[in-house]
Structures are given as structure tokens and as C-alpha cells.
Simulated assay, not measured.
Amino acid sequence: MVEIADFVPHAPVPREIVDEYRGRVPDELIEVWENYGYGTFGEGFLRIIDPKLYEAEVGDCIGKTQGDGIAIPVMTTGLGDLITWEPSVGFIAIMYRLGDTQALGRTFEGLILFLEDEILLEDLKAEIFPGAVAAHGELPYDQSFIFVPLLSMGGEAKVENLHKRDTIASIQVAVDLQGIIGH
């Protein structure tokens, strides 16, 4: 069983979602949905999200994948990154703030280990996140810290330029202004 020490629940995952995505996402993730539900962990940096909601709201923001063309949104980060499950390659972080992507491995348990070893923050170039929490407070479940202005629009990567914004709307705005990130 996957253990998430600092999980903060937001809501249970409805049985219909579990049934709809069973066989499409890793069994480990199904187990997390059943045992933990939607919520945050990693000191608020990662959040387990409703894949159906994110497919409906930002599915067109995911972009073309290198593998089999399937990308199911399963998590977000506190910096507005979207983490997808792509069966042919594993977990992929789409970092809209940087216009880049990062492979995160094939197992959910591996993600947890990377998070515990602080490798995940480094891989996602997210070392600024703890400072943002210290300066601006913890994030609500559906918000992320977003650079204002966006880095691609001349913003600087400083804590004082991070603002709490709705995650879904922020992804939509980033794609509207910067375009889709291929991966």
C-alpha cells in the first residue's frame, strides 16, 4: 500500500471516477484515490485532482504527447504545473511557468520517494515553493502560486512575484498567452 504521511484530504473520489479510470491509470493511483481521495501532500506542493474535471477544463491545454497520445491529468503542483499519466512513458509534469516538461517515472511510489528526498522539487525547478508558502501562506486546494507577470512575459522568478491564483484558470491563461507545450 502507498503511504502518504502528510496527506490533507479535500474530498473523496467518487466511485464513478474510480470505475471510469480503472485500467487507464496505474493501480497505485486507484489505491490512493480509494484510500485518501483528492487532497494535498508534500507540504502542500502536490495535489491529487479530479481527472475528469481537468480533462474537461484543460484537456486542450495538455498538448500532443510523444507516446501513444494518451495523457490523463492526475495531479497539479503548487506552482501551477499539471502532472499527467501517459501509459507509454509514465508520469509527466507539464511546467507551464517554464514552457517545459519533465518525466517523473512510472510509479506513484517513486514520486513519493523523489518528494521525500527533495529530488522532485529540484527536477521540477520548484525550489521557490517553500519560500512562497512562508511569504504568502498555504494554498487552498484549487489554487497555485503563479508568477505575475508570467516568466514568458518578462516576469522575474522571485517569491514576491508569486500570487495565489485558481489553478485551472492559470493553466488556461498560460496556454492562451504562451501556446501549448509539446511533450
Rank of each mutant, 00 (worst) to 15 (best):
F145R: 11
Q172V: 08
I72C: 02
F108D: 04
A169C: 02
V58M: 00
R15L: 09
G110T: 04
G80K: 06
V175F: 11
I180L: 01
E20W: 08
Q172P: 06
E16D: 15
L111W: 03
E138L: 11
H163M: 13
F145S: 01
G80T: 00
M1K: 09
I49S: 03
C61F: 05
L124F: 02
G44T: 04
L177N: 12
D166W: 11
A132V: 00
A11M: 10
I30T: 12
L121S: 03
F147H: 09
R106T: 15
R165A: 07
A132H: 00
V13G: 10
E16M: 13
Q178Y: 00
L111A: 02
F114V: 02
D6N: 06
T101R: 15
Y96H: 09
A11V: 07
L98A: 08
E28Y: 01
A174E: 13
E20V: 00
L113Y: 03
A134N: 11
A126E: 06
M153T: 14
A134I: 13
L82M: 05
Q102G: 10
E57Y: 03
E138W: 07
V89I: 13
G69R: 06
A132G: 11
Y54C: 08
G105Q: 04
W85S: 08
F145A: 01
L113T: 13
K158T: 10
Q143R: 13
L82T: 09
E16R: 15
V8L: 06
T76A: 09
I70C: 00
I181T: 15
H136T: 10
D60A: 14
L46H: 01
G105T: 03
T65K: 10
Y96E: 07
A132Y: 04
G154F: 00
L162W: 01
E31M: 10
M1Y: 05
D100Q: 14
I180W: 04
L98I: 12
P87R: 09
A157K: 13
